[in-house]
C-alpha cells in the first residue's frame, strides 16, 4: 500500500493536448502536513498538474494518489479530501460573499444553519465580514482571492491546492495570503503551492519541485537547491557608488567570470566556485585604492538558482544530481 507519510504522490504523470506535451513524466511527493512548492515559469505545466491532482483532468499516463486514493479510480473520495484555489479566482460574481460560501456548504451536505455559521466564521477569519453581503463582483483582487480560498476551505480539506495564489496581488495582499497559508499548515493541512516566484517558494515551501517544459528539473528543500547549484555568490559594495563599474571590471578580470552590476543597491555580484579567490579580489581592490562598504560571500538566492535551472545554460552539477524527473 501507499506510504501514509505522503499526502500527495504522483508518478510519471503525462498529459498531452493535441500536439503539445504539457506534462512529460512528472513525479511529485508532498509529505503530510507540509508545503510542496511547485515552481516553474508560465507554461511549465504547473496548472495541468494541479488539475490532474484535483480530478478535473485525466492524465494520459502515470498515476496520482491523494492520501492513498487514486485520482481516477477513487475520484469521489479524492474530492472529499481536497480543496482547490485556482489562479483565476473561481467565485460566483453574481452572489454575495456569504451566499458563495453557504452554497458550497450546502453542496457539501451541511444543514442551512451549519452552512451559514461556517460561512460567517470563514468570512470573519479572512476579514470579509464587512463585505459579506455585497456581490463578489464588487470585491478587489485580494478580497476575491481570500473569498476563493475561503470557498475551498468550507469542507475542511486535508489537502489544499493553491494555484498561483498571489499572482497579480499587491505586496500587502500577498503578505496576508502568506500568513494565511502558514496558519493552515500549522493546522496540519498539506499544501501544494504552485508559483512562479522563487521568493514565495523560499518563504513557504518545505520541499520544492522545479518543473520546466513539463519535466521535473530539480527537487529538494530550498537549501538543497541553493547548495546544489554548487556555487556561491560574491557581493561587493564599494563605499563610493561612482566606482561600481571599476569594481565590476577588476573583479571579472581577476577571476575571469562575468560580474553583474546592481546600480540600485550599489553592489557588484559574481558567481564563484568557492572562497579561494577572495584574497586575490580583496588585494586587487586594495591596490586600486577602492574602499569597501560590504564584502560578502553567500549562497545563491532561489531566483538565481531558478534562472540557472531554466535558463539556457543550466548548471551541470544540478542536472547530474536531479536527473530523476526526466
Amino acid at each position: 500500500m501507499t506510504d501514509d507519510t505522503y499526502a500527495i504522490e504522483a508518478r510519471g504523470l503525462v498529459k498531452r493536448f493535441r500536439k503539445t506535451t504539457a506534462l512529460d513524466g512528472v513525479d511529485l511527493a508532498a509529505r503530510a502536513g507540509t508545503v510542496l512548492g511547485l515552481l516553474g515559469p508560465n507554461g511549465a505545466g504547473k496548472t495541468t498538474a494541479v488539475r490532474i491532482l484535483a480530478t478535473l483532468l485525466r492524465q494520459d499516463a502515470g498515476e496520482a494518489r491523494i492520501c492513498g486514493f487514486d485520482t481516477t479510480r477513487d475520484a469521489h473520495q479524492v474530492r472529499q479530501l481536497v480543496g482547490l484555489t485556482g489562479q483565476y479566482a473561481s467565485v460566483d460574481d453574481g452572489l454575495s460573499g456569504t451566499s458563495n460560501l453557504v452554497m458550497i456548504g450546502r453542496l457539501l451536505g451541511m444543514s442551512r444553519k451549519n452552512a451559514k455559521s461556517r460561512a460567517s466564521e470563514l468570512l470573519g477569519r479572512f476579514e470579509l465580514t464587512e463585505a459579506a453581503g455585497r456581490p463578489a463582483s464588487t470585491y478587489s483582487g485580494g478580497m476575491r482571492r481570500r473569498l476563493d480560498l475561503a470557498a475551498s476551505l468550507v469542507g475542511r480539506p486535508r489537502v489544499l491546492y493553491l494555484d498561483e495564489p498571489t499572482t497579480g496581488l499587491d505586496p500587502r495582499s500577498r503578505n496576508e495570503m502568506w500568513g494565511i497559508i502558514r496558519d493552515l499548515v500549522a493546522d496540519g493541512v498539506t499544501v501544494l503551492l504552485t508559483t512562479q516566484y522563487m521568493e514565495e517558494a523560499d518563504q513557504l515551501a518545505h520541499d520544492i519541485t522545479v518543473i520546466d517544459h513539463g519535466r521535473v528539473i530539480a527537487t529538494g528543500t530550498p537549501d538543497d537547491l541553493k547548495a546544489a547549484s554548487g556555487s556561491r555568490v560574491l557581493e561587493v559594495t564599494p563605499a563610493d557608488h561612482g566606482r561600481l563599474a571599476d569594481v565590476a571590471t577588476l573583479i571579472s578580470e581577476r577571476i575571469s567570470a562575468p560580474a553583474a552590476v546592481h546600480s540600485d543597491s550599489g553592489t557588484v555580484s559574481v558567481q564563484v566556485a568557492d572562497g579561494t579567490s577572495l584574497p586575490a579580489v580583496v588585494r586587487v581592490l586594495e591596490d586600486k585604492g577602492i574602499e569597501l562598504a560590504e564584502f560578502t560571500l553567500r549562497k545563491p538566492s532561489l531566483d538565481e538558482v531558478f534562472l540557472a535551472l531554466t535558463g539556457d545554460s543550466p548548471s551541470p552539477s544540478l542536472s547530474a544530481k536531479d536527473g530523476d524527473g526526466s
Partner: peptide
C-alpha cells in the same frame, strides 16, 4: 497559530478524519 481556529480542520499529519464515502447517493 490560534488565529486560525477551524474547529474540525484535520489535526496534525496522519490523524485523518472520517473515511471518505465511496459514492454519492
Amino acid at each position: 497559530m490560534t488565529a486560525l481556529d477551524f474547529p474540525g480542520v484535520p489535526g496534525p499529519a496522519g490523524s485523518a478524519g472520517p473515511a471518505p464515502a465511496r459514492r454519492l447517493s
